[in-house]
Design a protein around this nucleic acid. Sequence first.
DNA 1: TGTACATCAGTGAACGCGCGTTCACTGATGTAC
DNA 2: TGTACATCAGTGAACGCGCGTTCACTGATGTAC
Lengths: 209, 209
Amino acid sequence: MERQRNPRGQGDRLRTEIVQAASIMLAASGDAGQITLRGVAKQVGIAATSVYLHFPDVAHLVAEAMAGFFGELERAVAAAGAGDEAPAAVLRLRCRAFCRFATDHPGEYRVMFESAQPDLGTSADFADSPGRPVFESLARDIARCGPPAGADPFRLAVRLWATLHGLVSLRIHRPRFPWPPLDELVDEAVKAAIGQAVGAGAGSAGTAK
Amino acid sequence: MERQRNPRGQGDRLRTEIVQAASIMLAASGDAGQITLRGVAKQVGIAATSVYLHFPDVAHLVAEAMAGFFGELERAVAAAGAGDEAPAAVLRLRCRAFCRFATDHPGEYRVMFESAQPDLGTSADFADSPGRPVFESLARDIARCGPPAGADPFRLAVRLWATLHGLVSLRIHRPRFPWPPLDELVDEAVKAAIGQAVGAGAGSAGTAK
DNA sequence: TGTACATCAGTGAACGCGCGTTCACTGATGTAC
DNA sequence: TGTACATCAGTGAACGCGCGTTCACTGATGTAC
């Protein structure tokens, strides 16, 4: 179990290992405030001080791990809509993918949407809140569906986003509640948002949880 | 700043003070895992050991404070529907009250719905999850509105609850997002749930945030 | 071909702090006789 | 009316632990001359 130091010029390998360990610990606890520099160092198998070689701060480390989480979510959601299907189907699949990510990775999801953003020194006012791209893509998908006349697409997107977040957040925090199948609830919410049937066809039975 | 001990037979006063201090600290941090026995004791102005006179555990103290929060929420929601108004108006007002409680008391709300339940020694399997009464009353209010034929009232309640929770939870965690007025979003969600206009009349302009 | 030096990739001891928990203790107030 | 004792409502010192952060240090590998 002896660690051997990385070869010259490969010091960044340790950086990667540290981020990975922090990610695992964040996912396990679901709470950004709970990971510690010493805890991460122990997990990696290095001296506590070695973390300082790559990060000035635990906050910066957490921020990097969280950025990775948001990247994963964005990729998962985007992948779900790949292909040239009908806009309503794309929206439905992407909403499902969002919720699936959350229930498959509850710790990550909590860190992303229910923890305080790590306090880096920067003003943090110009940079938009992480996760915003996912909302924007959701809003575009809704607009593409041609929502009912008189409805504000932005508000529809806000309400749908809130419903999706509420469904997975409550499911995470109230696991013993008699939840109906998640995919069905998502489909109903999407249907309500764009005001038309979304076809609970082939995909529904196979992927329902 | 000298504390003087309570008179004989009034030892429970300190218990109350401890719970109050814990409640304040919970509300301030929004995170049950962050309050400490020593922190609470310092806040009250007593020796750390004195907490043990009334609670075996921090978990039991937190549980008692949380129970108080749920009581407040239930009272606030119930009060909103008092009077003999139309069922749809009652539902709308109660949903607004729920959200109002959350945005007025974000720390309490996070502790109630986004923190781990304190781990008491008990099995915790028979006791239902806290907050359940609020959901049940919401479900009853919906049923009273006579939801559209073919719709499952329980599912409607689940979706509406999720939407309300999502709206306030995201608002708490993404304060810089350009949120539309909360009451309007709530009214729209209620309207969508029971499938009829709920009358955005007199109350709307006055109480919108 | 040697050798001095610089750089890289880390380590290890030590600091002061707050934490939960234990243990023996204090000191005022009531009560039995 | 006295006085010994029990009870109540707390206190204070001490323990071992994990925390972030500092500081000086190690030891292998490259590079300039």
